[in-house]
């Protein structure tokens, strides 16, 4: 016979064990600290770094204006890239074979050629297409634009960056959409939703959880890719201003590279904070843990219940 004691046991004393020691962690930490201190000392005393120049130009008006242009390039091109990426990804997954092929060819071309080459090409657009005319072929013209008369390197740089990035965003978004279980679109269909509505209301919001981390990655990557717009040529961005224009005049490349690096790092840090909050928003419902709001409601309900019993 099995003897089972069902009487409530006296609660045992909490365990007070000796913690495991990790001596090698300490050794590694000390070695790393020594190396870092040595490097910092070397950098501080090495004249080539030109820290005076660094301080002088860190908050130079031209540099901060360049940083602003870089940020604008990043934001505009990413907004266009994400919008276009969603369209391309949905086209790629749509039941329509025409859409599928168009999307495939777009990805093939824009992922298959280097961004630098594409930017040079966009810079040459006004040379290749000197005039844009809108009208009936061989008939009257309604609209006419002389591209060569315009000076639009910023716009061309934005378009160049955006169209290239859209191809990568399309793949990220497609992966996100594919990660949503089939049952979700099936349930939406069974409720009478059209394919497009199921995409918009059910699938895409759930795909966001998978899409956001790599998209944050892409934004940060884009911030730095903007330094390639010199190929257009566009030179008013952070790297163009600090590391080429100013450094070229005063013949001190190293401190100005450090200036540019500092700004890039600062902007990246801000973007990372934004990504954190976005990820938190789109992970709602993904965990069984109760949200703060739900916990408050529960506590309130419990209090009310207790008050009622008194």
């Amino acid at each position: 016979m099995v003897d089972v004691d069902t009487s409530p046991a006296a609660s045992p004393a909490a365990i007070d064990a000796v913690p495991l020691r990790h001596p090698w962690r300490w050794v590694a930490a000390v070695v790393i600290v020594i190396l870092v201190v040595l490097f910092l000392y070397g950098a501080a005393t090495n004249g080539a770094y030109g820290w005076d120049t660094y301080r002088k130009y860190l908050f130079d008006a031209r540099v901060s204006a360049g940083a602003w242009k870089t940020l604008q390039l990043t934001i505009y091109s990413m907004v266009i890239a994400i919008a276009l990426g969603i369209i391309l990804a949905v086209m790629r997954l749509s039941p329509n074979p025409v859409f599928r092929s168009v999307s495939w060819v777009y990805l093939w071309i824009f992922r298959g050629t280097p961004i630098y080459v594409q930017l040079v090409f966009w810079g040459l657009i006004p040379t290749i297409y000197q005039n844009i005319q809108l009208g009936v072929p061989f008939g009257p013209t309604f609209f006419h634009l002389n591209l060569q008369a315009l000076s639009i390197p910023f716009i061309l740089a934005t378009i160049g960056l955006a169209l290239n990035e859209a191809a990568y965003m399309a793949e990220i978004i497609r992966a996100g959409i594919s990660s949503v279980p089939e049952g979700q679109s099936e349930a939406s269909t069974a409720l009478g939703m059209s394919w497009g509505m199921a995409m918009r209301r059910t699938v895409l919001p759930q795909a966001m959880r998978v899409i956001i981390p790599p998209t944050g990655n892409e934004i940060i990557s884009m911030l730095k890719t903007t330094s390639l717009v010199t190929a257009v040529p566009y030179s008013l961005d952070l790297y163009g201003v600090a590391a080429r224009d100013i450094a070229g005049v005063i013949f001190q490349p190293v401190p100005l590279l450090m200036v540019a690096a500092t700004w890039y790092l600062a902007i990246t840090s801000v973007l990372m904070v934004g990504q954190f909050y976005l990820e938190r928003y789109f992970s709602r419902g993904a965990s069984r843990k109760l949200t703060t709001k739900q916990l408050e409601a529960l506590a309130k309900a419990k209090q009310m219940g207790e008050a009622g019993h008194v």
């Binding site: 049952g183 099936e186 269909t189 009478g192 059209s194």
Partner: peptide, 26 residues
């Protein structure tokens, strides 16, 4: 056409083995 098929389904409720609730909605 898909739009008409969607209209037909509105009047027919379906319950699935794996529930298929929308996890991002309460």
């Amino acid at each position: 056409p898909p739009r008409e098929a969607a209209k037909q389904r509105r009047d027919i409720g379906m319950v699935f083995q794996h529930f298929n609730l929308f996890p991002h909605r309460t």
